[in-house]
Design a binder for these strands. Structure first.
Lengths: 145, 145
DNA sequence: CCCTTCCTTGACGTGAGGGTTAGGTTGGTG
DNA sequence: CACCAACCTAACCCTCACGTCAAGGAAGGG
């Protein structure tokens, strides 16, 4: 599983001594594929904090958390670019940055988009349920008719 | 809008005399783009019943209905190929075809897939709602803090 | 040293269309 | 008849969020 099998602390079996983890661990924890995680780096969405001497990606806890936030955002159907923007936005709001009003404005737009998307998802769900029911009806009709 | 403006029956303003409509009408009725409708023909998913002498696609009511069924299937996330299979399957069941048992079996698999997808959609909706709420909370936190 | 497992980059493929360009045809009207 | 909107084919490239495959380097144990 791990890259090599060095003697690791049995009390903290999955934690490198610097709190940095390789991509495989990240994939396991987040449920994202290696390809996806690398792709997110390509696009600049989540760049690992460090690299090993040999070039291995090393992710901090914050990196992993960021990936988990992204995972939660996915059902909202935002593009990767939009997600990046939102993450930056939230970060900037976290820091007591300059133009608060503008940031809050942008945040509000994101929120509205999110609400709209939730509505759309609900509609989709209703349609999907309806179709599933249709299939169920067809089944009972044809099962012993 | 229409190709030419012949005197049409005001009682059935959008119905060609043979119950066949051109692609533009179909797009308008189904909300699908011309591009998409032509694409569905390319893949064999919905082939128009007829063509005019000049080569215009002419869609029957069944054709349009088929497109509308496809639209309802879309939230279930089936591929176009799977949709085609399911449509064929339902058609074959409609006709008193040969191997009923096998057809019903396949139908049951589709139904199970649909149900699974509905569950997945519900989960996505929950996650999306959660994230929207998070955004709302961030808004109230930062709005006048 | 070897062996295994994990990791690297690079390149190409996919699905479901969207967009565009270019040139040609049709169907109906005034 | 002229005109015009709507339609046609064919070809091309573009997008998004990855999947897949290849060939090879790195980390660590025996």
């Amino acid at each position: 599983m791990r890259a090599g099998k060095g003697p690791i602390d049995p009390e903290a079996p999955e934690l490198s001594r610097d709190g940095l983890v390789q991509i495989g661990q990240v994939a396991e924890r987040t449920g994202l594929s290696l390809r996806t995680i690398r792709f997110y780096e390509e696009t600049g969405l989540v760049v690992p904090t460090a690299r090993s001497d040999g070039g291995f990606r090393l992710y901090s806890d914050q990196d992993v958390e960021r990936l988990e936030v992204i995972k939660r955002m996915k059902p909202l159907g935002f593009s990767l670019e939009e997600m990046q923007e939102l993450l930056t936005l939230l970060h900037d709001l976290g820091q007591g940055g300059g133009d608060r009003a503008a940031l809050v404005d942008r945040l509000q737009m994101f929120h509205e988009a999110a609400v709209a998307r939730v509505t759309a998802l609900r509609d989709q769900l209703a349609v999907a349920e309806g179709f599933a029911d249709t299939l169920a009806a067809q089944l009972t009709t044809h099962r012993t008719a």
